[in-house]
Simulated scan of single mutants.
Amino acid sequence: MFTARRMGAALGAGADDDPQAARIVDAALDEFREHGLDRVRMEHIARRASMHRATVYRTFPTKDTLVGVALTTWVQRVLGDIADAVADHPDVRTRAVEGFTIALRTLRADPLTNRILLADEAGKPFLVTYGGALVDAARTFFADQLRLADDADGIDPDAAAEIAARLSLTLLLIPDSYFRLDTDEDARAFARDHLLPAAIPDPATS
């Protein structure tokens, strides 16, 4: 079983730096999107990647290892795309609002999100077992982004990133909400009115 500790360790290293591993991971992600994590076997992934099964096993000795690295790579790509998309916005609070909006839209639109939400691991929902490691990855990434910002003085980057990551994960896990989040404007309004005051309070109003 791919334990939560091993998932946490894997989150530091995706597959995009290794062309062969990236090809296998891309095939795995496509299979997971279409069929879910539980039903896909290594031979399915090998066939989609146009590789011999032995080659896949040499790169990823077990399916659990491949699942961990594939989801790591997926998370890294999503976070990287968000960071690129908000890089030109003028201030840290605007970047946070737009980043939340893009993340919510992207993750809701990706079939892999629902596959992960519905997946089981040892009789428990996948995110109950591995959610902490995924939150930790998102928190680390966004905290690092805050530390690089020129206008983030007075902000606790780890606390802000933790609040944003956990709140975002909750909205994905339980999409029914008092708050309207059907459109990008809904998401921006929620982020401005509720996420920012909790995660990145404005010192002018403190």
Rank of each mutant, 00 (worst) to 15 (best):
V97N: 08
D88Q: 11
T59C: 15
L66Y: 02
R77V: 15
D88K: 08
R77Y: 01
D91P: 00
A83I: 07
L79N: 12
V78C: 15
A85D: 15
D81R: 14
V78P: 02
D81G: 12
A83C: 06
E98F: 05
T65I: 12
L66G: 07
R95C: 10
L71G: 07
L79W: 03
V92Q: 07
W74M: 02
L71H: 02
D88R: 09
G99C: 06
L71C: 10
V67M: 03
R93G: 08
E98T: 02
A87C: 07
D84F: 06
V97Y: 02
R95L: 06
T65W: 04
L66M: 14
F60R: 03
T72R: 09
R58A: 14
P90M: 09
V86Q: 08
L66K: 04
R93H: 06
T62I: 01
V86A: 07
T72M: 09
A87T: 14
V69N: 00
Q76V: 08
G99Y: 02
D84Q: 15
F100D: 06
P61D: 01
T94Q: 13
D91G: 10
E98R: 12
D91V: 05
R95G: 09
H89W: 06
T65A: 13
F60P: 04
D84A: 15
A87R: 13
V86E: 12
T101M: 06
L66E: 10
H89F: 13
T72K: 08
V75I: 14
A83W: 00
R95I: 00
D64R: 04
V75T: 12
G68K: 01
T94W: 04
V67C: 04
A83R: 11
T59D: 08
A87L: 10
V75D: 11
E98S: 11
V97L: 06
F100T: 09
F100R: 02
F60D: 03
L79S: 11
A70T: 00
T101W: 00
T73P: 05
V86P: 09
R93L: 06
A96Y: 01
Q76D: 13
Q76L: 15
W74I: 00
A70S: 15
H89D: 12
G68N: 05
A87G: 06
T73G: 11
T101Y: 00
F100H: 10
T101R: 10
L71M: 12
K63T: 06
G80W: 01
R95M: 04
T101F: 01
E98D: 10
K63Q: 11
D88F: 03
D64T: 01
V92H: 07
I82S: 07
T65M: 10
F60I: 00
R95Q: 13
V75G: 09
G99P: 00
D88G: 09
D64S: 14
R93K: 08
P90D: 14
T62K: 09
G68L: 07
R58C: 07
T101S: 15
A85M: 09
V92I: 11
D84S: 13
R77P: 03
G80P: 03
V97T: 03
